[in-house]
Amino acid sequence: MSNEVKTKEKVDMDPKYIIKLTVTLFVTCVIVAGLLGLVNSVTEGPIAAINKENTEKAIQEVLPDLEGSPATVELTAEMTAAASGAGATLTEAYESNGAHALKIVASGSQGNIEMMVGVDAEGVVTGVSIVSNSETSGIGSKVMNNENGVLDQFIGKSAADGTLSVGKNVDAISGATVSSRGVTTGVNAALAVAGVMG
């Protein structure tokens, strides 16, 4: 096979041929890009609407006393540092009447867990809702689906409880320790962020 390549190289190094190849490839890319732009303009709206709906649903789940629409809060360096200090990432923040809904990404057993944590004006957790995850079905998914109220146990916790940790003041689902730890890390991060938001 390498001999074939060598003879072909010698014949086809002709500049005009290379230009023809490049142009053909470029034109194909442009056509594909154009078609994709078209499809994108059609699907952009529905996708944005779905994302907005999911976010609003998650916020409503974690801020049960929500009145009206939550306002988006711009992430400050302080807020993101507070979250990463606790071991997770802050991606979005919303505010309504002093209460905050924070979208946190923490690492779970099979990848990242994206969750929405609600913290009221007094810094007390009002709800934890899982937005997306890829945890093992039948094991980690039990935590994600709030079996035995494993997510509800976070409601009422605040900075006064100290750092939450599985085994100390948080119960895990047996066999799903890593997933439980992931959620706990996320809640710790949310409390830290709420602390600096005031």
Partner: peptide, 16 residues
């Protein structure tokens, strides 16, 4: 390039 084009179309379609 052709395959990637179709894959992206299906991807966007499914997301929407």
């Amino acid at each position: 390039v052709v395959i990637a084009g179709f894959v992206t179309m299906v991807d966007l379609f499914l997301q929407a």
